[in-house]
């Protein structure tokens, strides 16, 4: 068994961390924070120095104040936007995965759906948003439908890519083990597809609030999008900035939530294992 000594049984651990070394944890935190603070300070100073009126460019301190002043409105409107975004995203997720699976399963479906997918993606959705009001009327339904249209493409494309990327040798091995088509799908194809599907989900989940806000620009009397367009219309730029800030924070939260779900769902995937030992 002495031969086995030459066969490194378990990877990692023994590998030395390269000299170029990742920056320390503190620096990883401090640098972006300092950079952000410097930017905000310059902004504040510029507004004061040039004496810019608030309707042109409000100072960051004024935006913070507005967020505080309008907090109850902002939060209740955020709830509305978040609901539309979540509903639209959920529908897009189900549709994207179902159609993605159908496209993978059948060449005919693939060929028939393909042009429609490309067309639907190529059409500038913002421009056709007003048509939704014509078709389904003003209100939440139109807004949700807009979110669906806005977010389903990344999910369907990534589902198809993922389901098609199973290793042919692995599928052949499964077949030799007596796997049926269904068993190969559930035990091989779907797990293989998950990393790709999650990539689509992360893109779509962060697009969803954006879609909801655009939907509210044209089709709603509620939500942060409505607040935003009203504020801009009446030159209440400070409030507009406050609304943008809240939407952005919500978008960032969604991104991290999606990452968290991803990490919990596919801890085995290379993207989740961390490349800290590879030297890059």
């Amino acid at each position: 068994m002495s031969v086995e000594a030459s066969d490194p049984t378990v990877r990692g651990g023994a590998w030395r961390t390269p000299r170029v070394a990742a920056p320390s944890r503190a620096a990883a935190w401090l640098l972006p924070a300092a950079s952000a603070l410097i930017g905000l300070a310059l902004w504040e100073a510029a507004v004061a120095y040039f004496g810019l009126p608030a309707y042109l460019l409000p100072a960051p301190s004024a935006v913070v104040q507005a967020i505080f002043t309008y907090r109850s409105v902002l939060i209740s409107q955020l709830a509305f936007t978040a609901f539309a975004a979540a509903a639209g995203f959920a529908i897009a997720l189900v549709l994207g995965i179902v159609f993605g699976a159908a496209i993978t399963a059948s060449r005919t479906v693939d060929r028939m759906l393909y042009p429609w997918l490309v067309i639907s993606h190529a059409i500038p959705k913002v421009v056709v948003a007003p048509l939704f009001i014509v078709w389904i009327g003003f209100g939440l339904k139109s807004e949700i439908l807009f979110v669906v249209v806005f977010t389903f493409f990344p999910i369907i494309v990534n589902t198809v890519t993922g389901l098609k990327s199973a290793d042919p040798d692995l599928l052949q091995l499964a077949r030799s083990m007596g796997a049926t088509r269904w068993e190969a799908l559930t035990k091989i194809r779907i797990p293989t597809a998950l990393p790709s599907i999650f990539a689509g989900i992360k893109i779509s989940a962060t697009l969803a609030p954006v879609g909801a806000v655009i939907g509210e620009f044209v089709a709603s009397n509620n939500g942060l999008g409505h607040v935003l367009i009203q504020a801009v219309g009446s030159l209440e730029t400070t409030l507009a900035f406050a609304a943008v800030f809240v939407i952005s924070v919500f978008g960032i939260a969604i991104w991290y939530a999606a990452e968290w779900v991803e990490r919990a769902s596919i801890p085995w995937h290379a993207s989740q294992r961390g490349g800290s030992n590879t030297g890059f």
Binding site: D7, P8, T9, V10, R11, G12, W268, A270, R273
Partner: peptide
């Protein structure tokens, strides 16, 4: 001894 480990933790021979 590797029964509960993951494939990527093992060398090619293992």
């Amino acid at each position: 001894e590797f029964a509960e480990r993951s494939p990527w933790e093992l060398s090619g021979g293992m």
